[in-house]
Amino acid sequence: MKKMMFIFFIALLSLASCVQVKPYQKAHLNQEDMKLSTRKVETFDNSIESYREGSSGATGGKTGGGCGCN
């Protein structure tokens, strides 16, 4: 599994230098649904999942603090 993930990440990074996307070509990428940040209404889901599951983090949200957080 770890090996597969490593290969996947390397493949992604190697793709990075392939295409130079100009600002005027980002019409699709700039759409609200294409944003890489979590949606504001998704904040609550992340919080719930951090309480009800043994793991948390890497969601761009809070990683500690308060009762219930693990």
Binding site: L12, L13, V21, H28, L36, T59, G60
Partner: peptide
């Protein structure tokens, strides 16, 4: 005390594809 260090890397790959890698190191 919860100390967190977060590193993120985002990259536009094509005019239709982009990704974000996030890593947290959390020490409690």
């Amino acid at each position: 005390l919860t100390s967190t260090f977060t590193a993120t890397w985002s990259q536009v790959l094509t005019r239709n594809l982009q990704f974000l890698i996030t890593t947290d190191v959390v020490y409690q």
